[in-house]
Design a protein around this nucleic acid. Sequence first.
DNA 1: TCCTACGATGGACTTCGTCCAAGTCAAGAA
DNA 2: TTCTTGACTTGGACGAAGTCCATCGTAGGA
Lengths: 136, 136
Amino acid sequence: MSDLLQRLRSRGWRLTSQRRVVAEVLDGDHVHLTADEVHLRAAARLPEISRATVYNTLGELVAIGEVLEVSTVGRAKRYDPNARRPHQHLMCSGCGMIRDVHPVGNALGDLPESERFGFAVGSVEITYRGLCPACA
Amino acid sequence: MSDLLQRLRSRGWRLTSQRRVVAEVLDGDHVHLTADEVHLRAAARLPEISRATVYNTLGELVAIGEVLEVSTVGRAKRYDPNARRPHQHLMCSGCGMIRDVHPVGNALGDLPESERFGFAVGSVEITYRGLCPACA
DNA sequence: TCCTACGATGGACTTCGTCCAAGTCAAGAA
DNA sequence: TTCTTGACTTGGACGAAGTCCATCGTAGGA
């Protein structure tokens, strides 16, 4: 994660304690926290940190591609720090838990030219849904 | 769409003017309206219809599988009446326009057992992203 | 050490959606 | 046809998630 801090610094980011804490909170695999959870965990280490700062920092991290936003139907956005290695998601329809997964095959190639409607298709996002062992 | 009304009646639904209007608004292909847009269009035909009723009706239609909720990163949910024929989505990163698409291949089968983490995987949702001709 | 522009703060505000008590009405019964 | 009843609708309050903004604080260069 100090890699991340280095990359941020080289982009001209000021390394404030708030940004450092947000980056630390997002460290790890299979991490898919909501903004509120990020705020909660960040506040445990830095009690004065504000919600606005967490939203700002997450938004900036998403903008520069260090973090992905995961869209979840009807729930708060989740933030996925594993942006540097391509992967897809498996989501529990019961509790909302998310795991990173790596399907085989080439989903982009599975979309025929005739189905592209003139779009310049650049990426594909796949979400598998089902019940996790705990919810089943 | 009168098919839909018949199916709803056979499920014991009362066919109120409000429900009829919501069903009419959702008629067609490549329709992906937000709840607010549904309300706007419904109100054009039935000015007294309330937001709560639109939300209720959409929720019920989703619950019985006649309409799909489409997750869009960050924006309001969209409702897709084309629930009876399986399809995926192609979304413009510029303007947010959505088209229904039909990829070849078997995305569900592309997820190896070792990547399922004990989940009972039931469905897969694929969103292709790119720029539409107008935005490119 | 000092300066200053970039970043943080917190509270108001917006958007999207849900809930509820009270009123209305579709459709079956007589 | 009229009656009855409980399912449906309404509008407004409420809540969660997210944005905006004026002001204050401070990282890091001079």
